[in-house]
Write a protein that binds this DNA or RNA. Structure first.
Length: 484
RNA sequence: GCCGCUAUCGUCUAAUGGUUAGGACGCCAGGUUCUCAACCUGGUAAUCGGGGUUCGACUCCCCGUAGCGGUACCA
């Protein structure tokens, strides 16, 4: 039985993909719902028909799925308060707009967009705040109705008081005061009959019994209008929590120009959803302890709106990378390999033998920042790239010495049985040999490592040898000897 | 312009009015080592400015300044 006192929602508009900022807002709502055993609702706000982008809803749903944020009621899930898409609720909005007009809380407006933009221009030229001048505000009801009947294009505006103050009680910022003098008679119903956000949002939040409106800070300035609307309808006002914005490192709201802002883009880039969530939750919230790495369960327990910060937070990729690599190092090898499969495939690497792939992945687990790097880091295992023979020779060593050591290595490797050909055994063998013969470790192992990997920098030489197997190890060693 | 929000290391952030202002990322150095990473240790670096209140201010108040948001028949 869910806690009826906590019903929250995430309400994106389908104007494109779900972006990082939206994801963070959704996460906070989700955490809050989970924490209080409440209900989390996904509602689609598609009231702007001109900005609809095909596939947006699918993208949002896909993102919710990938990030593991489940919702209790929503567009594809149903619930007792649907439909959960605003274009299917039009009659609800018009009915309520009518109620407002009836009660003198709203009025018809016949001003054209042209007149409005001209007005705004004049106002800003005169350095007065651009605001609707109330041209239609005092039209008689008969006259207005008459025009409506005749089919004159019109909108409906809220009829805000001209004086006085209204305050918003915000869970993260406290009381915020606004003066009606600075508030515009906002449009609530557009010419096309669709509501604006101001109306639809208030009606839906009320009808869906939303208890806490948790949304981004950009909504704070219009909240007094929302509060007034609740009051005008005679409804209880929900609690508000305005989250700090996620900022670009360059300043301003995080936007498309900052590169990756689509929540699903991070999947392609090789980030783990739990790492993204962990990173993003720290943007504007902290547990008041030194803990920075959280499982989802820990997050749910620790989450508290009281611990939400007020100032915007810069999206810092370095930290995300750190957290992602931390998660990569700490999930099981089996799980990691499974998640790497698409990235192996992308490199054209055969992924049928998953056991073998696990051994390959183990080689580079500690060196990956994103899954996307797995192909490049392990390519040498599958195909040795040609390299210059000079790479084989360590600093302070010589060509002849190097060749000699490689031949000794070759001998040692050859002597190891197929069944004993593993990293530990090889290491034991080589280290004692090096000791007994008073060899400089680097002079002997560097060339071998380059022989096996074809690279200056690579994972542990014995680990590579084990993954390669005896035959291939010896082939590559021979190849190196021949180069010298 | 007007309205609103915000202000601690470069970044994310701790600090009941009393701390040598703490942690993390980054960066730098050292250790480990067959290389590069990883890992371990250490270092670097901050209370926007000015006034108050107070025995005492990062913390409370005022005034600036700066950043951000809003100012649409977009959300």
């Amino acid at each position: 039985m869910p806690n009826e006192n906590v019903r929250v929602r995430f309400a994106p508009s389908p104007t494109g993909y779900l972006h990082i900022g939206g994801l963070r807002t959704a996460l906070f709502n989700w955490l809050f719902a989970k924490k209080h055993k409440g209900t989390f609702i996904l509602r689609i706000e598609d009231t702007d028909q001109s900005r609809l982008v095909e596939g947006s809803v699918e993208n949002i749903l896909e993102a919710f799925k990938w990030y593991g944020m489940d919702y209790d009621e929503g567009i594809d899930k149903g619930g007792d308060y649907g439909p959960y898409i605003q274009s299917k609720r039009l009659s609800v909005y018009t009915k309520h707009a009518q109620d407002l007009i009836k009660n003198d809380k709203a009025y018809y407006c016949f001003c054209t967009s042209e007149r409005l933009s001209k007005l705004r221009k004049e106002q800003s030229a005169q350095k007065i705040p651009p605001q609707y001048d109330g041209f239609c505000r005092d039209l008689s009801k008969e006259e207005a109705l008459n025009k409506v009947k005749k089919g004159v294009p019109h909108v409906v505006r809220m009829k805000l008081p001209k004086d006085g103050n209204i305050s918003v009680e915000d869970l993260v910022r406290g009381k915020v005061d606004f003066s009606f003098r600075n508030l515009d008679d906002a449009i609530i119903l557009k010419t096309d009959g669709f509501p604006t956000y101001q109306l639809a949002n208030v009606i839906d939040d009320h009808m869906m019994k939303i208890s806490q409106v948790i949304r981004a800070e950009e909504w704070l300035p219009s909240t007094p209008k929302h509060v007034w609307l609740y009051l005008a309808f005679g409804w209880d006002v929900p609690k508000f929590a305005h989250l700090p914005l996620i900022m670009s490192p360059k300043g301003g709201k995080l936007s498309k120009r900052d590169g990756a802002v689509s929540a699903m883009q991070y999947k392609e880039m090789g980030y783990l959803p739990e790492a993204i969530l962990n990173f993003i939750v720290l943007l504007g919230w902290n547990p008041k302890t030194d803990q920075e790495i959280f499982s989802l369960t820990e997050l749910i327990n620790a989450f508290d709106l009281k611990k939400v910060n007020k100032a915007g937070a810069v999206f810092n990729l370095d930290k995300l990378n750190f957290i992602n690599s931390h998660y990569i190092k700490n999930i099981s090898l089996e799980e990691l390999t499974k998640r790497c499969v698409p990235f192996y495939k992308k490199e054209g690497i055969d992924t049928k033998n998953i056991q073998y792939l696990e051994k390959v992945t183990a080689l580079v687990k500690d060196r990956m920042t994103t899954l996307d790097e797995v192909g490049e880091l392990t390519r040498f295992v599958f195909k040795l790239a040609e390299y210059d023979s000079s790479v084989l020779i360590p600093k302070k060593s010589t060509r002849d010495k190097t060749k000699d050591y490689l031949e000794q290595s070759h001998g040692l490797l050859n002597g190891v049985g197929e069944n004993d050909f593993n990293s530990n055994k090889l290491k034991e063998l080589f280290i004692s040999y090096i000791k007994d013969n008073d060899i400089k470790t680097n002079d002997m192992l560097w060339p071998l490592r380059v022989a096996l990997s074809g690279q200056k920098n690579s994972p542990d030489v014995f680990d590579i040898a084990e993954v390669l197997g005896k035959a291939e190890t010896i082939t590559r060693t021979n190849h190196a000897i021949n180069k010298l």
